[in-house]
Design a protein around this nucleic acid. Structure first.
Lengths: 272, 272
DNA sequence: ATAATAGTGTCTATCAGACATTATCTG
DNA sequence: CAGATAATGTCTGATAGACACTATTAT
């Protein structure tokens, strides 16, 4: 349709593209960073996957897994690839959260980061990985105005206090969470903010999506599913109300299985 | 804290940064694109601002306003600057929507776009702008599985049909809207998708934020505010229910003013 | 005066929150 | 058998949807 149109320099689109010089504007690097969350085997809490940085900046700091977006892939594909490469995690729920772009958020050079949240149903063991890359699952608590990330085996404890502050956008005001570091150890870069944004999104989307199901097995019992909801929401639910709430989204298999929590057999369900 | 740490090459962070070469990875260009919406003067509908492209690609096509992110600014600041430069709009509600990153979404070179939605309370007249840049407000209807963008003065009519399709993410399914062009004229690039994502976000956020107030004046009457809610939601509301819903978010001024719709005087309110 | 619209009252169905009770299983 | 937990019943208060009515005012 526009093939024969000529621009102010008398060029067709084909001619224009052939002579186009992409070097006119300074370009930022673009990375993806992932908040990867999974339930502990006994469903007693959530775990988050972190990578220990092997180089400057934030040398020896723990950071969210992530990496550069390659020239031939979307950010979504990059996030998927990095998860596979760095953690071996496949079959994961993956959703874009927010793009972080403060010019000085990486001291090396201009790096924008497209943040993703990734929910998995299994805490897979992570290898130390290549080039001095160390990865580990950490206990993750997000509640009562606190982010608490710790792993007693490797003796790491990271804690942030969250306070609500009001900001303006145009002439309307909205509340937002601001983190304050409470421990000697911290997360690299602005990765706390990524966690905050992702958790905000998760808790909002629980209300109108099937997102928590991505932390359950394909076949699950309702007691287990309820615990997963409670872990993500950060508070207890009433059993009867919970079952009414999800009743029309799940399908009983007419088959019983052992719950992860509890010691009685329970009806197995799948997501419709 | 990390100043004295040395990496595997024996470099401190300062030394590392001094020798860091940012050219190791291919970098995409990054732009911002804005869905700028405002109410018509008589509140009979919404209008969207579009820019006519003066160069390849999509020469002569209408597109969302936007531009490149400068090296010293965040995407948010870039969006704010571009709005001011291209449209003269200030004091606008501005919120990030989604980052679009298909490698071939711009035929010139790799260009990622961080999409924003911008809501304003005034349709300001737009100048033709510099370097053959033409800008205009279009009537905007988003309903019944259709996007309809038109301006009878300049004889432009753009229409997309929206069909719901189900996609998979991990092992859970979710619905999404897919556009099909119904007119000869189209929007440039993937800008329809930006509009779809932004409208999805707007309709969701109406439920738990004060977002529609950014399309009202600072002092407003409840009949006018209700119409703004109805325009954004795409359906009518019951007056009594609407007033109960917003009762604790607004403050009466004890002062009457003329509504934009209707011909009687009505109590003026401000947002708390 | 009257038509239009600002503003309020109220009925109902639905739903979330909160316990209580029964049924069933495992040790 | 006994304690735990799976599964269901039901009461209450809050809220969204729907409609009806009264009060006020611009022409």
């Amino acid at each position: 349709m526009t093939q024969t149109l000529k621009d102010k320099n008398g060029l067709t689109e084909e001619e224009f593209l052939a002579q186009y010089d992409p070097g006119d504007y300074p370009r930022p690097s673009v990375t993806v960073d992932m908040l990867l969350l999974g339930p502990k085997k006994d469903l007693s809490g959530l775990r988050i996957l972190l990578i220990k940085r092997g180089g400057h900046p934030f040398l020896n700091c723990w950071a969210l897994p992530g990496g550069f977006v390659h020239p031939d892939e979307t950010c979504y594909e990059a996030a998927k690839r990095e998860l596979r490469e760095e953690t071996g995690v496949k079959d994961v729920y993956l959703e874009q959260v927010y793009t972080f772009s403060k010019p000085d958020r990486d001291p090396r050079t201009r790096v924008m980061s497209v943040a993703y949240m990734a929910l998995t149903n299994k805490i897979v063991p992570v290898r130390g990985g290549d080039d001095a890359l160390e990865a580990a699952w950490f206990d993750f608590e997000y509640d009562d105005g606190m982010i608490h990330i710790f792993n007693e085996d490797i003796g790491v404890d990271i804690q942030y206090e969250l306070t609500t502050k009001r900001f303006k956008n145009g002439h309307i005001k909205y509340p937002n969470l601001v983190p304050t570091l409470k421990t000697k150890t911290m997360l690299a870069f602005d990765h706390v903010e990524i966690i905050i944004e992702a958790m905000k999104k998760i808790r909002k989307e629980i209300e109108y999506t099937d997102l928590p199901f991505s932390m359950a097995d394909v076949k699950f019992t309702l007691p287990d599913l309820q615990v997963i909801y409670e872990l993500l929401l950060g508070h207890k639910l009433y059993k009867a109300n919970f079952r009414i709430m999800i009743a029309d989204r799940v399908e009983p298999l007419g088959e019983k299985g052992k719950s992860i929590i509890g010691r009685r057999m329970s009806e197995l369900y799948i997501l419709k």
